[in-house]
Amino acid sequence: MSSGFRSMHPVVALLYYAGLLLFTLLVFHPLFLATEIAGLLALLLLQGQGRQLLRSLPFMLLMAASVALLNPLFSHRGAHILFYWLDQPITLEAVLYGLMMMTMLLTIFIWFISYNYTVTTDKFMYLFAAAAPRTALLTLMAIRFVPLFQRRLRQITLIQRLRGIDAGTGSLKKRMTDGMTLLKVLLTWSLEEALQTGDSMTARGYGSTKRSTYTIYKADLQDKLVMLLLTVSGVVTLLFWVQGYGKLEIYPRMRPADFGWQEAVMYGSFCLFVLIPAGLEGKEKWLWRSSKHSNYPSDTLKKTGTRSMSYRSS
């Protein structure tokens, strides 16, 4: 099921995620990072991905916490010494810096979860194919081969057991050797078939002229509008960043951040950038809910509005 932000044109998604990643890596400010996390979390929760988020939470927290701990232990810069540990000064600045890096890492992890859900492989390939058609084709073929090979490997494992090759029994050495034999059978078989695939490609004119691209995506008015909004708000934020705003100074000495009108404008446009997808998602959710109550009191529900008409039926 794809709807809301997920059903928008891949270029919109690319713009959003590329911009978001750039800001994560550039804008070193707790408020901005927290806003980003909030925006991504809101989007994920509205998309019903809470479970996915929970599953990767332990790993994320472990990685992030280790960064937060390691920094004060290894870095002793800063003016405010909190206490000594193993004769090493632990400074307030180092602790704060560690926490900042932790937040950044968390943002990156959450970014990836959201990115993986929204920019599916075929969307990524669509974008990628424009820049590197042959690499994209190669990757797509490999992606298709993986489930095919897994199925074949299962068959091979089953049948080779008849001749005593079994990765499930025996000593560790025998099992690993047998496992490799199974892979070799798969390799030989698949390479033979690859030649037929190559022939089928040639037979259908691959390499005869410059390729064109068939696309299942169409940019509609809303896509273009959102793209414009994202670009404008992103560029505004970036301009302020280049001017030196939105930077928290921790080293050499922790200084309270001043929040003038420049920061306020920058933060406003940043918020706009971050929250657009969650807003779209929320709007659609609300539309669905209200349409269920008012428009279709009968038991048959129909899709309404352009946004819910997904391009993909799956």
Binding site: D122, L140, I143, R144, S200, R204, Y206, S208, Y214, I216
Partner: peptide, 16 residues
């Protein structure tokens, strides 16, 4: 078969 989804496989020859 070269591609991973049906529409892509169908379009493959035309793209070529």
């Amino acid at each position: 078969i070269v591609m991973d989804t049906v529409w892509h496989e169908l379009a493959f020859s035309m793209e070529n």
